[in-house]
């Protein structure tokens, strides 16, 4: 699965990617503040930039015929994917938006940002439905914290958020109540002695199809926090009991930036340090059955319908893996 079949090199850093199911095109958010409409199969590949954000574009989803993006400028933008024009812009967070997650029925989506709030938005009206607050704005060492990850369960009833210090909250969407809090502390490295600052955080979340388990990705404890040199890490939690079922520690170093539960039961994780990696976790045998390096750090990926092909948003490229 991890062979790069096409490598579209660009100047930009791509942080997020999604696929328009109807039109077979990709939308990727980049470091130049643009959302790119990408048609990789063309020769040369088409990259059509859409201007609207000021700041790194870190979240993009396709829902109800629209593309919705989120960026470090704190704004959400609804786009017409055909005309490539902004339809609506909503100031959503006071600080950087770190990511988006779309509900199964596409009627709503969630955004998380460094204001440490998760907000639930109506896809069509763009109205704010709910705010979920429960992550501390400062780390225990008095530095600004960050709210990195958000995921929604397949039934649309549960939502999970995770922050820099490894705190994971599982919320009941209908009430906004916290169903469970988990502390994935291994993924946050505070160095009190050598360098006196921190690195890490939970960077990716993924519910099991039945909603009973939650996966969290990041990296393990880091010796030298100047570099992404902790071992890649994925933790599997039982949501009913709140227990850690297993922690998968990869041989490769770096952050697990995205986790997807494959229909056939395996889990795919991608991320990286300087370079990128693809890892396949077999949950029943509690083993990482495949871990391969790729050329550049992967921030996000999306699969085709057949789940045979992956499009990865990387540092300086969009890579297609099979």
């Amino acid at each position: 699965m991890s062979k790069v079949v096409k490598d579209l090199q660009r100047r930009e850093i791509f942080f997020c990617i999604t696929r328009d199911l109807e039109n077979h095109q990709l939308f990727a958010g980049a470091s130049d503040g643009r959302v790119y409409r990408v048609i990789p199969e063309c020769e040369p590949p088409v990259f059509l930039g859409m201007d609207g954000h000021r700041g790194y574009v870190t979240g993009v989803i396709c829902a109800r015929g629209c593309v919705i993006s989120a960026a470090f400028d704190g704004a959400l933008i609804w786009w017409d994917p055909v005309e490539c024009k902004p339809l609506r812009k909503v100031p959503a967070h006071a600080r950087w938006i770190r990511g988006l997650a779309l509900s199964p029925d596409e009627s709503w989506f969630a955004s998380v940002g460094d204001d440490m709030v998760c907000r639930i938005w109506d896809t069509e009206s763009g109205l704010l439905r709910r705010e979920l607050t429960g992550h501390a704005p400062r780390t225990p060492q008095h530095f600004p914290s960050m709210l990195f990850a958000v995921a929604i369960a397949a039934d649309g009833q549960q939502l999970a958020t995770a922050d820099k210090v490894g705190k994971i909250n599982v919320w009941e969407v209908s009430s906004g109540a916290v169903l469970r809090s988990i502390q994935a502390e291994t993924m946050y490295t505070w160095d009190p002695k050598q360098r006196i600052h921190s690195i890490g955080g939970v960077r990716s979340l993924c519910f099991s199809p039945d909603g009973r388990q939650l996966l969290a990705g990041g990296m393990g404890q880091v010796g030298n926090i100047d570099h992404l040199e902790g071992k890649s890490r994925m933790e599997q939690y039982d949501l009913e009991r709140g227990d850690l079922i297993h922690a998968f520690e990869g041989e490769l170093k770096g952050l697990v930036e995205k986790l997807v539960w494959h229909p056939q039961g395996q889990v795919i994780g991608m991320g990286g340090d300087h370079g990128g990696f693809v890892q396949i976790y077999d949950l029943s045998s509690r083993a990482i059955v495949q871990q391969e390096k790729t050329a550049a750090h992967i921030h996000d990926f999306v699969s085709n319908d057949a789940v045979s092909r992956y499009y990865a948003a990387c540092h300086g490229r969009i890579a297609i893996l099979e």
Partner: peptide
């Protein structure tokens, strides 16, 4: 002395911490 700013990885997170301070 405020050490250590050597952000070969995660420059922006590091500076978010250290410049804020």
């Amino acid at each position: 002395s405020r050490a250590w700013w050597d952000s070969h990885g995660q420059n922006f997170e590091t500076h978010l911490e250290l410049v804020s301070e």
